[in-house]
Design a protein around this nucleic acid. Structure first.
Lengths: 211, 211
DNA sequence: GAAAAAAAGGGGTAAAACCCCCATGCATTT
DNA sequence: AAATGCATGGGGGTTTTACCCCTTTTTTTC
């Protein structure tokens, strides 16, 4: 019995191409392909559509890789997710692993490594490269969870990533400029930032804002 | 006689996967795969390695797609380049077309479209989707070339994409703060920006700075 | 229901950013 | 020789940010 694989990626070309690669591996078969997380969750409502492994991109519209992985881990814990991404961003990788991904592959992976990863996930239940393992060890020492942004603060950060002044942002969010300054100050403290430029860079690097 | 295709992309998985797709098309064969522009130029030194079509990614280390395409157009004008990218950035697309690319495909393209593009490039010498055609028409009216940043201004912009104050940037560039302000003001005018946030976003969106 | 935490708003000061308009020196062009 | 372009630096002003420390109101928690 071949292991059933589903590939999820919004870039159709990449999606079909990776599907093609997996189809070439002897002990794997491609069940179907999805363009985003929402499409996958729809499909999974039918038991015949439940795969053994999901190869999942992280940056997707509608429902991204992290949220989708979380959902899968709750509803279908038997499905093993391997993240697939060009993102080398440490925090993103960690978020994905926390969401329950069993492996993480950079997109500059060789065909053989993909096969190896698929096989290891089937046999051992996980696949981690050296890079990822080191990251995991590092994450134990750092207290990442301490930084928790409020809903309204995230909203403010998105507005801060434009040419608007704080006064204008305040108007847009129906708040006093002073409240906005309050948000800013508490964010600066939490994230150890010096000025708005730093905030913008933080937002971009952590996916809160896409330029 | 099959048309010879070379794929250039730094993401190995994508590289191999696209190679696989092209291999499946009847009238095309994959000569070889490259991880960046430099590797391609090395290969081309041997006449037997000269393909009919190059499928080229834009963002690559060592020698990016735009520079590589320029080089190809000078030395091997018979080779037709099709750009392949996730970038939807207008300016990047235009740069690539100006460099001499005969076609431009987003990575969310279907397998059939890729085949269609390859065939059209062989037959007509070019392949442009509606989106690209509209862009081309638009570019004729706008005088994009007017905006020309000086060497030193670009250097300043890179520093502006950090938490440094202008005073600190001035020290780092061995200039008076007033000179820095001069750079800033002329850049704001040229690029129609309101403040430093806008500058940072411009820099990121146009590849002057990678966060 | 009281205590604690958070969200929202405020005052004041100093620094940074922004915006004009101007001067010098130096190379290239005409 | 005059003109142009450009890099560099400056004066003096306003606006916007940053950074203090503080109060009131709402929400959460025990």
């Amino acid at each position: 019995m071949k292991n059933k694989v589903v590939v999820v990626d919004d870039h159709t070309l990449l999606l079909e191409a990776i599907g093609g690669l997996v189809r070439d591996f002897e002990n794997f078969e491609v069940l179907y392909l999805c363009k985003n997380g929402q499409e996958l969750l729809e499909k999974l409502k039918f038991p015949k559509n439940i795969p053994d492994i999901v190869l999942m991109d992280i940056n997707m519209p509608l429902l991204n890789g992290i949220e989708t992985t979380k959902a899968l881990n709750e509803k279908y814990p038997q499905i093993k997710v391997i993240a697939l991404s060009v993102e080398e961003n440490e925090k993103t990788i960690l978020k994905m692993l926390r969401a329950g991904a069993k492996g993480y592959l950079m997109k500059d992976t060789k065909k053989e490594i993909l096969k190896e990863a698929l096989n290891q996930v089937v046999e051992k239940g996980y696949y981690h490269t050296n890079t990822i393992s080191k990251l995991l060890i590092g994450s134990l020492t750092k207290d990442e969870t301490a930084v928790q942004l409020k809903e309204r603060e995230v909203e403010f950060i998105e507005h801060a990533c434009t040419e608007m002044t704080y006064k204008e942002i305040a108007e847009k969010m129906f708040l006093s400029p002073k409240t906005i300054e309050g948000y800013r100050d508490s964010i600066y403290e939490k994230l150890n930032l010096k000025n708005r430029i730093g905030l913008v860079l933080y937002a971009i690097r952590n996916g809160l804002f896409t330029p």
